[in-house]
Simulated scan of single mutants.
Amino acid sequence: MNEIVLLIPHFNNPLGLIASLMSIGSTEKIDVIIVDDGSTKHGIDEIATRNAFTANGKLVFIYLDINKGIEHALNKGLEYISKNIEYKFVARLDCGDLCTGKRFEIQEIFLKENPEIKLVGSNVVAVNTKGVFLYNINMPINDKEIKNKMYFNSMLIHPTIMFSSEILATIGHYPINHKYAEDYAFFFAIIKKYKVANINQYLLQIEINENGISLSGRRQQVKSRINIIKGNFYFGYYPIYGLLRNYILLYTPYKLILFLKKKLNNEISN
């Protein structure tokens, strides 16, 4: 058993799962927990999936009887991980997203060399579903800036993170009452108790599916973020600006948001 365990939720995307596993370097030492969230059309081909995984570790498959949502799949995986105390670090990855370089080794070294940091993410390269480059996403690096700007939006990109498993004893699992924003709520719980960081490297390529969440889903996501901000509110610039920003996003067409995001991130990258 390795010290690192990777948690991947799956729903009707076996090809994306295989691509993600193939992107993990063969020298990485990592176990992988795959939780199928009651796939209804395209289930997991375990043989093909095992063949795609060349790293030094084992694959564990967990199946939910019905589709309950990603937060339930993630928590099922965390339940398994919590019972295996040998795991010191928990990483995340989503089907279709691709690791670059020695991502997990880099993050493990960072956490071991900076024991006061309990969770670390990274910068990412964003592509569309055809693999065409969209933009780079550069995240704030230090704990203070991340915590301040978390009131605007998540300053930790979910599939890039690795965290110390010890925090699960105090943080618990993903909240299930913040639909489409379970990661945002999870991160807020973490930053209230621990220091976090981002590594200034592009350790992941994420896939942006412009049609991945319905319009009603996007609105629910923003509403959930607003409720999370309110739940962590204090009277100051960052929470006030964050609330106003998210109320504006609530009524802004998503196509316009995507256009502005591409333009802003490309300008920053250049």
Rank of each mutant, 00 (worst) to 15 (best):
K102L: 15
L17V: 14
L215Q: 13
N56W: 00
L111S: 10
L168N: 11
L244D: 00
V124Y: 01
I30G: 13
K58D: 06
V120P: 02
K112W: 01
I62T: 11
I226Q: 05
K76D: 00
C99G: 05
L250C: 08
L98N: 06
Y174S: 09
L134D: 00
V120Y: 06
I47K: 13
K263H: 09
V32R: 10
N265I: 02
P14Q: 11
V32Y: 07
E28I: 02
L134H: 01
A52K: 03
N148E: 15
E79W: 07
E105G: 14
I47L: 11
I161A: 12
D183Q: 06
H178E: 09
L264D: 13
I229H: 01
G96Y: 01
K179I: 09
I146E: 00
V90Y: 05
I141L: 11
P9C: 15
E3H: 09
I18S: 02
H173F: 15
M22Y: 09
G121Q: 07
Y135M: 05
I33K: 03
A73S: 15
N136D: 05
M22Q: 14
M139C: 08
I176S: 11
F233N: 04
A189P: 00
F233A: 09
D65M: 15
N200S: 15
Y174T: 04
F188V: 13
V5H: 12
N142W: 04
G16W: 02
Q220V: 06
F259T: 08
Y151L: 11
P175F: 14
N266M: 08
I33E: 00
L168W: 07
N200I: 04
P14G: 13
D183L: 10
N209Y: 04
M162I: 03
I226N: 08
R103F: 00
S216K: 14
A52R: 06
G121Y: 03
H158K: 08
I191S: 01
F11R: 15
I191Y: 04
M139R: 15
Y174A: 12
G217Y: 09
K58Q: 10
N136I: 00
C99W: 00
G96F: 01
T160W: 07
Q205T: 15
R92S: 12
I34M: 06
H178D: 05
I191D: 01
D143T: 11
G38F: 08
N123K: 07
R225T: 00
I34F: 06
T100C: 09
F233M: 09
N12A: 10
N13D: 14
N136Y: 13
E267T: 14
Y180D: 03
P14W: 11
